[in-house]
């Protein structure tokens, strides 16, 4: 996993509530058995005017000019500013894979769906929940200023805006630690292998029916 420390990038708007993971990456692209290559199909149904198919050359497809990410002012954006309940619906990790593959490293919204929020951290993408009025002000500033760039400082837990102000944010210590160091948490959990084995021994005595039925 890519480490995340301090990231500075152009912010782009996804100005609607309840953006679901079907909208982030439609189901036909979930047939891939790979973990990469989803970026060209991020927000496929909003971004293109035709129906996308897996394996297609997206550079030849008709773009929806009204969609923010297709507008020159948001070219190269790596911070996504979004609304309430971002990432709701399906648990597909293809959603953060697509965001990351497109180039987004940070998503800022008033709230996130639980599974999506969790999946982001496994992929070097930082989701930041801020109060709704703070997000409103960021949207206003973003629309008013072309090339609006935010600096996300994870060690200090602040977002710095172009006008020099800063916004503090919360992040769970364990998740921060993993992101800062790009850690694979399977390796960390396996450091507790003895504790897992000890738990299993007692558990098997207490609930033997949970072991061995499927073989």
């Amino acid at each position: 996993m890519k480490a995340f420390t301090v990231h500075s990038g152009i912010a782009a708007p996804m100005d609607r509530a309840n953006v679901d993971t079907d909208l982030i990456i439609p189901k036909q692209f979930l047939k891939s058995i790979k973990r990469s290559g989803f970026g060209p199909n991020l927000f496929d149904e909003l971004r293109y005017l035709d129906e996308g198919q897996p394996g297609q050359d997206c550079s030849k497809r008709p773009l929806n000019p009204e969609f923010a990410l297709n507008q020159p002012r948001y070219a190269g954006a790596s911070v996504l500013l979004a609304r309430e309940n971002f990432g709701c619906g399906s648990s597909r990790e293809h959603a953060p894979w697509a965001l990351e593959d497109y180039g987004f490293r940070c998503i800022i919204a008033p709230s996130f769906a639980d599974i999506f929020f969790n999946n982001c951290f496994k992929n070097g993408v930082l989701p930041i929940a801020l109060p709704a009025d703070t997000v409103d002000s960021l949207f206003e500033a973003l629309y008013a200023n072309e090339g609006y760039t935010l600096e996300i400082d994870l060690p200090a837990q602040v977002i710095r805006t172009p006008d020099g102000s800063s916004v503090a944010f919360e992040v769970e210590p364990f998740r921060k630690h993993c992101l800062l160091n790009g850690l694979d948490d399977i390796g960390l959990t396996l450091e507790s292998a003895d504790a897992i084995r000890a738990f299993e021994v007692l558990y098997r005595e207490r609930a033997p029916w949970l072991f061995g039925s499927i073989r």
């Binding site: 973990r35 648990s91 597909r92 990790e93 953060p96 599974i115 969790n118 999946n119 496994k122 992929n123 364990f174 948490d185 399977i186 960390l188 959990t189 396996l190 507790s192 292998a193 897992i196 299993e200």
Partner: peptide
Amino acid sequence: IGTSEVEHVLATQCLI
């Protein structure tokens, strides 16, 4: 769970 957690459960029988 997401796919990273599918791998985590396969490898460790646990979730954080």
